[in-house]
Structure formats: structure tokens, C-alpha cells
């Protein structure tokens, strides 16, 4: 294993590496966003107060049960298996999904299952006083959620979302089983052609590291932004 060989592999294959990394990032970012939205939706659904015995509350209960089943299935099985079942399962029924779309669906659903729990925890950790204060000025449940609770939940689940993004960057590698041309699959093809497995994958290691490192730094910056400045501006009284 030498640096010369690594450099020559890079020189020959850099467009492929770049395309693979791009696919990986695309899958990771989109599936994290989709997952966060699914998680938010489920988290909010689970915290709707149930009032007495009405048809509405029965429907809500059934719906929440279905959501719980979804969460349990996707949290409780390996993503590599989910990818096989979703892609080839639908294929068996004559539905040929684009591999890239299938990848985003699988990783997105997987992320959603985890995020649902983070969001539920995030909502439950908001002080009861915040709800009471919102109720006391006449806000309804959804107004309270949108204007008071969820903005605080966003901030609280941001670190978990960041973790999920980093995990998705790495774990999207398993999608190579359904031949999605992300970074791992691409590297396998490159290595398969030049028989330099160690050198080819060293490059991949570095690319993954760069992507995860940059992602975690960016998220740190976003967190800081959301917290705002430590100091506040005192308004100078105008003389009238």
C-alpha cells in the first residue's frame, strides 16, 4: 500500500468518487429531512389531548396505533433488510421503483421511526407551565404547538437530528445491496476493476470522514445561531 497508488487511483477515478459522495450526501440530507418531518408529525399526533369519548378520539387512537406499529417495525429491523423488502418486494408486485427513490424512502422511513421518539421526548420535556400560559391567553392546542412548543422542541432535538444525519451519511452504504450508486457501491466498482481494495477504500474513508466532520460542524453553527446572542440590547429611552 503506497501513497503513489492511492494518488493514481484518485487521479483516474475522482469523478466517480465525487459522484458517489454526492449521491450519499443527497440520500442522507433528503432522508434526514423526510425523517424529521415524519418524526414531528408522529410526535405531535401522539400528544394531542384526547377528549372524552368521541368518534374523533377513536379515529385518532386507531391512527396512533398504526403509527406505533410503523415505529416498532422500522426501529426493530435492520435497514439492509428493509431495503431488500421495499425494493424487491415492490418489484415482485410489478412496481419498479427508481433505486435512488427507494433509497431515500427506506432511509427516510427509518429515520422517521427514530425521530418520532426524539420528538415525543422533546415535547414531553417542555415545562407544563408553557402549555398553561398558552392556554391562559386563549390559545388552542395547535396554536400552542406552533407558536410555543414546537420552536422549543426544534432546538431541543437539533443535536439528535445532527446525529441522525451523520448516521445516515454512513449507513446509506448498506443501500449498495439494492445497487444504489452511492459512495460505497462506487468504491466497490472501482476496486473491482483495479483490484486495489485497500487503497481504493482508504480514499473512501477520507471522503466519509470529511462529510461527517463538516456536517457536525455545520450543525454546531446552526445550534449557536438558534440560541441567539448571550447579550441583549437595552433600548435607550427616547426623550420626548
Amino acid at each position: 500500500m503506497s501513497l503513489d497508488i492511492i494518488l493514481s487511483i484518485l487521479k483516474e477515478n475522482w469523478p466517480s468518487y465525487l459522484r458517489g459522495a454526492y449521491m450519499t450526501l443527497l440520500i442522507a440530507v433528503f432522508s434526514t429531512i423526510i425523517g424529521a418531518l415524519i418524526g414531528l408529525f408522529i410526535g405531535v399526533m401522539h400528544t394531542i389531548p384526547l377528549r372524552k369519548k368521541s368518534i374523533k378520539s377513536v379515529i385518532l387512537k386507531i391512527f396512533n396505533f398504526i403509527l406505533t406499529v410503523y415505529v416498532e417495525i422500522f426501529r426493530g429491523t435492520p435497514m439492509i433488510v428493509q431495503a431488500m423488502v421495499v425494493y424487491y418486494g415492490l418489484y415482485a408486485y410489478g412496481i419498479e421503483m427508481d433505486r435512488f427513490v427507494a433509497a431515500i424512502v427506506v432511509v427516510g422511513l427509518n429515520t422517521g421511526a427514530y425521530m418520532a421518539e426524539y420528538v415525543r421526548g422533546g415535547i414531553e420535556s417542555i415545562d407544563k407551565g408553557q402549555y398553561e400560559a398558552a392556554s391562559a391567553i386563549g390559545m388552542g392546542h395547535f396554536q400552542t404547538m406552533i407558536h410555543v412548543v414546537l420552536p422549543q422542541v426544534f432546538r431541543n432535538i437539533l443535536p439528535a437530528t445532527g446525529n441522525q444525519l451523520i448516521m445516515n451519511i454512513k449507513d446509506s452504504a448498506v443501500l449498495s445491496v439494492i445497487s444504489v450508486t452511492e459512495l460505497f457501491f462506487t468504491t466497490k466498482s472501482i476496486a473491482g476493476a483495479n483490484f486495489r481494495f485497500a487503497e481504493s477504500f482508504i480514499i473512501t474513508v477520507v471522503i466519509y470522514l470529511i462529510m461527517t466532520f463538516v456536517a457536525s460542524r455545520l450543525l454546531r453553527i446552526v445550534e449557536k445561531r438558534m440560541d441567539g446572542q448571550d447579550a441583549y440590547q437595552v433600548q435607550v429611552k427616547r426623550e420626548e
Binding site: A136, I137, G138, V148, Q152, R155, Y232
Partner: peptide
């Protein structure tokens, strides 16, 4: 409830809003 103004022992200001927004959000949204 909009006819009753409530002041709590634990203040319960909306943590995500600044002072002005705390006093504005209810008027605007409710």
C-alpha cells in the same frame, strides 16, 4: 379565557420568544 389575565407563580414566559413577542403573540394569534 381571553377575558382573564393569568399571572403564574413560576412566570411561565414563553422561552422561545423575546420580551416583546411574549406580549404580542397572544394578541395577534388569539
Amino acid at each position: 379565557r381571553t377575558h382573564l389575565g393569568m399571572v403564574f407563580q413560576q412566570f411561565n414566559l414563553f422561552n422561545n420568544h423575546n420580551v416583546l413577542k411574549n406580549c404580542v403573540v397572544g394578541q395577534q394569534k388569539v
